[in-house]
Nucleic acid binder design. Sequence first.
DNA 1: CCGGTTATACTCTACCTGAATATAAGGCGT
DNA 2: ACGCCTTATATTCAGGTAGAGTATAACCGG
Lengths: 320, 320
Amino acid sequence: MDDRAKRIRRNSPGGKADTAKVDLTAVVVAVSNNEPCVLTIGQTDTLPSGPLALEHRSLQSGLRTWVEEQTGHPLGYIEQLYTFADRDRAGAELERRVISISYLALTRKEHATAPSKSSWQSWYDYFPWEDHRAGAPPMVSDLLRPRLIEWAESADDDATRLERRRRAAIAFGFGDRPWNEDLTLKRYELLYEAALVEEAMRGSTLPPPVRGKSMVSDHRRILATGISRLRSKIKYRPVVFELMPPAFTLLQLQRTVEALAGRLIHKPNFRRLIEQHQLVEETGETSTETGGRPAKLYRFRHAVLEEGEVAGAKLPLSRA
Amino acid sequence: MDDRAKRIRRNSPGGKADTAKVDLTAVVVAVSNNEPCVLTIGQTDTLPSGPLALEHRSLQSGLRTWVEEQTGHPLGYIEQLYTFADRDRAGAELERRVISISYLALTRKEHATAPSKSSWQSWYDYFPWEDHRAGAPPMVSDLLRPRLIEWAESADDDATRLERRRRAAIAFGFGDRPWNEDLTLKRYELLYEAALVEEAMRGSTLPPPVRGKSMVSDHRRILATGISRLRSKIKYRPVVFELMPPAFTLLQLQRTVEALAGRLIHKPNFRRLIEQHQLVEETGETSTETGGRPAKLYRFRHAVLEEGEVAGAKLPLSRA
DNA sequence: CCGGTTATACTCTACCTGAATATAAGGCGT
DNA sequence: ACGCCTTATATTCAGGTAGAGTATAACCGG
């Protein structure tokens, strides 16, 4: 234990170096009208967040407190995303370092208990290149591809040029590569590195080359982290149901998954999968709101959560 | 931005509540002689760790600095594990909160550059119930099962009793349930909750009911987190190769994976998988050290890392 | 009652996975 | 040299899963 004391002494010449401000930030997700949304506060595009304080029992309870206070939304399911601590995050003039611990939360818009200054924004306002439900958006090949190639070519040596081209091709599915919806974070980081998004150009007077709303500080990166995590998680854990009403049709469920994944799913295979894993049970009711033949209503079988977390539903994502 | 100011004011009556000490902790893993090992420092069972300081450029670089200084091991592959901030972690008497950010690092023992006070310990010294390579260890059914059932029965109401039994059965594969090696963290947390491990009995004079070395502070929980993460990750990402020498036989590779997973793998299927995904290429050499027919030596095809991270090798874990 | 629309059921094929078996190529003792 | 032990490598087979397409059912509105 005496090296520990030594270490601490070594790094605390003034007794101040070791302290940091800790910020909790939430990516709160809901889906309505087949549109995946994130909760923001104020006029600016800002995620709910606040400093960790001594009265908070834990990180999670601190986060819940902040989000409920700022948005009137009590949170259900939450999971930790990532901890950032870039020193230049809040500008170099700050003496103290800022640690930012981010969480992903899944909820439903109806769960709000109080009106507030918060509002819901579609994911795809911030990431217009991420919605492939109607095929790849034109901007991917018309705008992003040429700009990324330009960026790759601007590298000093051949090796870097090659590597940049390959990274871009993998992330965005250029050439004959498939689109991988899970790579949202990689794509954003690539656009940032290539200085194609507004956040990478702060202080510049030029307009950002790529459309898509930006967010305060590094909140768009945190949102991208949340989207990436959620898109991969829905494939092996039944978390979608956190976003569903108590009773729903199988098509509603499918549309919700499609909204999150940003791509279409083969209907018969999706139903087969859900039934195979016995994720839902019929309520007995039907819904005629869909226009055609009435659809059976289902509810989530909460028992699956207890049955051995192995199951995990892989999604039959269509290649079409 | 003026709610932000308000929030900060609200929680900083003395200007002190918002600061925290940030600790970086590393789970450094290597495999040798078919035994998965973790790097510890000093006499006590302590993971390499140290406070984040202002001179560190980032969390990762701070961690690398600490580990290298304490153990003489430069780190290669690292990934963030989890951020803990339990208030009772360092005892309630502390004014300031401690945030603990943990990382998983993969390396090889040979990479040490300097001798030091650090040493390698087998995972299974800390978690003897996690090694199922020779079948389920007797202690699981002889010791853990009765103790966990006892704990479940001691609950006040029927619902809790049922839920505890089910959680234990899932985590440890009681009854006819399969053993799921990924649940290392859940198992440790369950034993902690049931007060069967030493860490849950600090301050008590009774001997801990379950064998297995304990660690300083919450380091055993952090190690469990690392094992869980690594065990699931080897199934879909080619990270094992970080632990392998430059050239190896397919059986050596298999034994390494088995050491990590704590269970055996079906040999022909394992080879088929590796070849299918073209994870390796022949070096042209062979090794006769294995006793029987000389085995071809292989090296990792680094190109797969660039080829589109989708691939992901699922492991054919044997049920036998 | 007919076409539009959605729901639900069924089929077919390619591929993946678990599992078992067969053959090859070294070392070593007699 | 021969046979045996050990490990390496190749092949096969059955069951299951995933992708994709097609068929039938039930409601609505004109």
